[in-house]
């Protein structure tokens, strides 16, 4: 973990809304939305949609697979930050519901959460004070 600053001052900037299409990855889709809109830092302000299957990290470093379709996204929070190498990295956490309505939670694993029908997301740009 390279993060050493506990408090980062800044202000909110632009607001972007996107509809992300089926079979796109949830986490990388949010990163690509930032690329499309020119955001370098952002917070998720609202999100809902569905996944083909969901994959979340577990507390002991394993992967929780929730089979669909569809697995509904019922809660999502997160942010996008630039990585140490300058790439964009979204960290998304949330709760999903399987096709019987049973719920599971955890961090979404990048690359393993393909969107089923649609994903609606609102990002608000974060402008850190340099």
């Amino acid at each position: 973990m390279g993060e050493t600053i506990a408090v980062e001052n800044g202000s909110m900037g632009r607001v972007a809304y996107a509809r992300i299409a089926p079979n796109e990855d949830l986490v990388q889709g949010v990163e690509k939305l930032c690329l499309a809109e020119g955001f370098r830092n952002a917070f998720v302000r609202g999100a809902l949609g569905s996944l083909v299957d969901a994959c979340m990290g577990t507390i002991d470093g394993k992967y929780l697979q929730i089979p669909g379709p569809a697995v509904e996204i019922v809660s999502l929070a997160g942010e996008v930050r630039p990585g140490e190498d300058g790439s964009l990295r979204a960290a998304l956490t949330g709760v999903v519901a399987d096709p019987e309505g049973n719920v599971y939670g955890g961090p979404f694993v990048a690359g393993l959460n393909p969107i089923c029908m649609t994903f609606e997301v609102t990002l608000e740009e974060w402008l850190p004070v340099k």
Partner: peptide, 23 residues
């Protein structure tokens, strides 16, 4: 991850986005 086949033609635009200048 699985790639599902939808009934309609694949739309090459995968992210439809717009933004406003301030929240």
């Amino acid at each position: 991850p699985r790639t599902l086949i939808h009934p309609g033609r694949f739309n090459p635009v995968r992210i439809q986005s717009l933004r406003s200048s301030k929240g």
